[in-house]
Structures are given as C-alpha cells and as structure tokens.
C-alpha cells in the first residue's frame, strides 16, 4: 500500500467516491429526519394519559400494540436482513422499489424504532412539575405537549439523535446488499476494477470519518445555538434616573 497509489486511485475515481459519499449522506440525513418524526409520533402516542374506559382508549391501546410490535421487530433484527426482506419481498409481489427509496424506507423505519424509545425516555424524564404548571394555567394535554414538553424533549434528545445520524452514516454501508450505490458499494466497484482493495478502502474509511466528524461538530453547534446565550439582556427600566 503506497501513498502514490492512493493519489492515483483518487485521481481516477473521485467522481465515483463523491457520488457514493453523496448518496450515503443523503440516505443518512433524510432517514434520520424520517426516523425522528416516527419516533416523536410513537413517543407521543405512548404517553397519552389513559382516560376512563371508552371506545377511544380501546382504539388507542390496539394502535399502541401495533406500534410496539413495529419497534420490537425493527430493533430485534439486523438492518442488513431488513433491507433484503423489504426489497425482495416487495419484489416478489411485483413491486420494484427504486433502490434509493428502499434504502430510505429501511433506514428510516429502523431509526424510527430506536427514536421511539429515545423520545419516550425524553418525555418521561421531563419533571412532573412542568406538566402540572401547564395544566394549572388551563392547558389541555395537546397544548402542554406542543408548547411546553416537546420543545424541552427535542433539546434533551438532540445528542442521542446526533448519535443516530452518525450511526446511520456508517450503517448505510450494509445497503450495498441491495445494490444501493452508496459509498461502500462504490468503493467495492472501484476496488473490483483496479484490484487495489487496501488503498480503495483506506480512502472510503477516511471519507466516512470526515463525514461523521463534520456531522458531530455541526450537531454540537446546533445544541449551543438552541441553548441560547449564557447571559441575558437586563431591561433598563430606570434609565431616566441617570
């Protein structure tokens, strides 16, 4: 393995690497967003206070059971297998999904299953006093969640969500089994053509590292931004006295 070879491979194949990185990043970012939405939805459904026995509560219970099954299945099986099952089962029924769309479905649903637990944990960890204060000024459950609880949950689970994004950037590599042209798949093609496996994958490794590093830094920045400044402006109401 030599440095010159790496440069040569890069020179000859940089559009393919770039395209692979682009697809990887696109799948990771979009499916993390999809997953976050799914996660919030399930987290909210699971924390609706059980009212008195009624038809609505019954429906909610059944619905929540289905959601629990989804979470268990997607957390309990490898994503590589999920990708195969989703793609080829649908294929067997004559539905040929675009491979990129299939990738979004698999990674999105997978992330959603993990995010559901993260969001639920985030909601449960909010101090009971926040709910009580919201109720005491007459807010209903929906208002309490939207204006008071969820904004705090979103902030609190941001580090965990960032973790999911980083994991998704790396784990998209398993999608090569359904021939999604992400970075791993592209690298395999490049290496298959030039027989320089070590050098080609060293490049891929570096690209993955750069992507995850930048993602982590950006998320850290976002956290800081959400927290707002440490100091606050003191409204000068006694200006006339001076």
């Amino acid at each position: 393995m030599s440095f010159e070879t790496i440069i040569t491979i890069l020179e000859n194949n940089w559009p393919m690497f770039l395209r692979g990185a682009y697809i990887t990043l696109a799948i990771a970012v979009i499916s993390t967003i999809i997953g976050a939405f799914i996660g919030f939805f399930i987290g909210i459904m699971h924390t609706i206070p059980a009212a008195k026995r009624s038809f609505k509560t019954g429906v909610l219970k059944i619905f929540n059971f289905i959601l629990s099954v989804y979470v268990e299945v997607f957390r309990g099986t490898p994503m590589m297998v999920q990708a195969m099952v989703v793609f080829y089962v649908l294929y067997a029924y004559g539905i040929e999904l675009d491979r990129f769309v299939a990738a979004l479905v698999v990674v999105g649903l997978n992330t959603g299953a993990y995010m559901a637990e993260i969001v639920r944990g985030g909601i449960v960890s909010i101090d009971k006093g926040q709910y009580e204060a919201a109720q005491a000024i007459g807010m209903n459950h929906f208002q309490t969640m939207v204006f008071i609880i969820l904004p705090q949950v979103a902030r609190n689970i941001l580090p965990a969500t960032g973790n999911q994004l980083v994991m998704n950037i790396k784990d998209t590599s398993v999608l090569s089994v359904i021939s999604v042209t992400e970075l791993f798949f592209q690298t395999k093609s490049i290496a298959g053509a030039n027989f320089k496996y070590a050098e080609s994958f060293a490049i891929a490794c570096l690209i993955y590292l750069i992507m995850t590093f930048i993602a982590t830094r950006l998320l850290r920045l976002m956290e800081k931004k959400l927290d707002g400044p440490d100091s606050y402006k003191v409204e000068n109401t006694t200006a006339a006295a001076k």
Binding site: D127, A134, Q135, I137, P151, Y232
Partner: peptide, 30 residues
C-alpha cells in the same frame, strides 16, 4: 383552571421559555 392561579413550591417555570414568554404562553394559547 384558568380561574385559579397556582403557585408551586418548586416554582415550575417553563424551562424552554424566558421570563416574559412564561407569563404570555397561557394567556395566548389558553
């Protein structure tokens, strides 16, 4: 409940809102 003002032992200010927003949110939304 809007006719009763409650003050808690543990304050329970809304942590995601600033002082002014804390005093506004109920008036606006409820």
């Amino acid at each position: 409940r809007t006719h009763l003002g409650m003050v808690f032992q543990q304050f329970n200010l809304f942590n995601n809102l600033n002082v002014l927003e804390n005093c506004i949110v109920g008036q606006q939304k409820v």
